[in-house]
Design a protein around this nucleic acid. Structure first.
Length: 482
RNA sequence: GGUCCCGUCGUCUAGUGGUCUAGGACGUCUGGUUCUCAUCCAGAAAAUCGCGGGUUCGACUCCCGCCGGGAUCACCA
């Protein structure tokens, strides 16, 4: 297969939100499956919206997702520079070609006048086309004057990998700005020049560019450029409404999910499969799986709703999968997700907890709320015992008795490991004559005072003999003091 | 308003004229796995395939119209 050159070309106006990561993932996949190149290009021509540090944020996000770029900031490449503001000369050269061909003109019409035209068109309920107001005499192009494309409207047919065969009529083409008064190009002009000079073979971007295709097609023609392969991607919709997800509507940063304990693997898996599937019933896809199976023409055409439930489920699946593949490596990624109380503990101790609780986690940050009692003695909340559905029928005397007998037996255990403890627990159960739900609930609550915890014998093993006995005794004392 | 795109369970989707009395996944509910929670397993509820016409022996699948939703009409990308 011919090597594909794809790119992700964000503008550094802030973080990458989940509404537009797919336009990074899919190009990445296409590049990798042909052993081609994936370029990161920073479209920073809008000085007003430029946000300091945004480029770093973007690179950080891509790295987290596992989308490494062969060319771009940080790695360089044969088509440098990769910041559009540093490519002004290149755009100027191409602009001169257009002027020479009579397909561009300088336009010094003041914006107030243009706005007036626009309002006029709006009032007449007609689409605003600047070419209807094209000035007769245009000045020579020089610094400070914007340069406009001179449209020669006609019918265009083209193919889109996801939307199929499309048509763009003359009414979609207009005299749009090529180079702004500040000397920098607009997206409309810059991306085409860049893609051409960088050898980009596949242009993938959000669906919102679909209506502009008439202009782009006209520009490829005027520039005598061969069209790349197009693939417009449907929008990702917000969780409740059916509006395109955007920053203005509070779309979260991709990295917010990382901070919430979502794994990059799960995020890529989720996003890639939001609006794409390979026709099988597979749900769990690794990056390798995606590179192997991804097909642009199987991308959905309709927008897809972002469903955090499924993301969380997928994350749980990934936690379990990664644990079986390399538990230590997964553990290393839990740093920063442990509760305050765990801070003084060694890795081996935290790992012991992780090992017995990982399969209950949906996100890594669940560690925060689910493991506290392993590191610090829980506050004794007797109501948890009295109101427990299995325990409420017992008197305080009976509860103390059950606890005392358990302590006696446990105290005699010399080899404190999970298997032995499980056996011992069964003996305690048999001798007590109680139901498992009764005796075990009592012990479990007494040890953790948490709504849930791992298997009893595992919990006790990790807690250690001293702590286990101390906590049980503490409850006995509390009960006795009532 | 013009232009463009879209329309199958609540959500993500399978489905390219008959095998669809529409399949899977998330979520929800029920039951099971000697405590809880989670996992795992089994099962249930959940889509008159946006609506109306055609074409056809037969349409979720093809055609037309309508309706609904979204995007876009910047010296932003």
């Amino acid at each position: 297969m011919k090597k594909a050159v794809t790119r992700f070309a964000p503008s550094p106006t802030g973080y990458i939100h989940i509404g537009n990561v797919r336009s990074a993932i899919y190009p990445y996949l296409v590049a990798r499956q042909t052993d081609g190149d994936f370029i990161l290009r920073i479209e920073d021509t809008d000085q007003a919206r430029f946000v300091e540090g945004a480029t770093e944020l973007i690179m950080d996000t891509l790295k987290w997702l596992g989308l490494d770029w062969n060319e771009g900031p940080g790695v360089g490449g044969p088509h440098a520079p990769y910041f559009q503001t540093e490519r002004a000369e290149i755009y100027k050269e191409w602009a001169e070609k257009l002027i020479a061909a009579g397909r561009a003109y300088a336009d010094s019409t003041p914006s107030e006048t243009i706005n007036k035209y626009r309002e006029e068109a709006n009032r007449a309920k007609k689409p605003f086309l600047y070419r209807d107001y094209r000035p007769e005499n245009t000045p020579k192009w020089e610094a400070g004057i914007p340069l406009r494309f001179k449209a020669e409207p006609k019918d265009y047919d083209y193919h889109d990998e996801v939307y199929g065969d499309l048509h763009m009529g003359p009414e979609t083409q207009d005299d749009f700005i090529l180079i702004k008064a500040d000397g920098l190009p607009t997206y409309n002009f810059a991306h085409i020049v860049d893609d051409a000079t960088m050898g980009v073979t596949h242009v993938m971007r959000g669906q919102e560019y679909l209506p502009s295709m008439g202009n782009y097609l006209a520009l490829y023609d005027a520039l005598e450029l061969e069209r790349p392969i197009f693939a417009q991607l449907p929008h990702i919709l917000g969780p409740t409404g059916n509006k395109k997800l955007g920053k203005r509507d509070g779309a979260k940063s991709v990295t917010d999910y990382r901070d919430d304990g979502i794994l990059g693997e799960a995020m890529v898996n989720f996003l890639a499969c939001l609006g794409w599937n390979d026709g099988t019933e597979k749900e769990l896809y690794s990056m390798e799986d995606l590179v192997r199976e991804f097909k642009l023409n199987r991308v959905q055409r309709a927008g897809a709703r972002f469903d955090e439930n499924k993301l969380n489920w997928l994350n749980g699946q990934w936690i379990r999968r990664l644990f079986t593949e390399d538990a230590q490596a997964l553990y290393a990624r839990t740093e920063g997700f442990w509760p305050e109380s765990a801070s003084g503990f060694k890795d081996a101790e935290k790992y012991a907890v992780f090992e017995i609780i990982y399969d209950r986690l949906k996100t890594l940050s669940d560690l925060q709320t689910m493991t506290d009692y392993f590191f610090v003695a829980p506050r004794i909340d007797q109501d948890m015992i009295f109101e427990n559905k299995f325990l409420k029928k017992f008197s305080e005397q009976e509860l103390m008795e059950m606890l005392r007998k358990s302590v006696d037996k446990l105290d005699q255990v010399s080899e404190w490991n999970a298997e032995v403890l499980q056996g011992e627990l069964n003996r305690i159960l048999a001798e007590s004559g109680k139901k498992p739900a009764e005796i075990f609930s009592l012990i479990r609550i007494s040890l953790s005072f948490a709504p849930f915890s791992p298997a009893l014998h595992d919990t006790m093993k990790v807690l250690g003999k001293n702590v286990t006995l101390a906590r049980l005794n503490a409850v006995i004392t509390a009960l006795a003091n009532n």
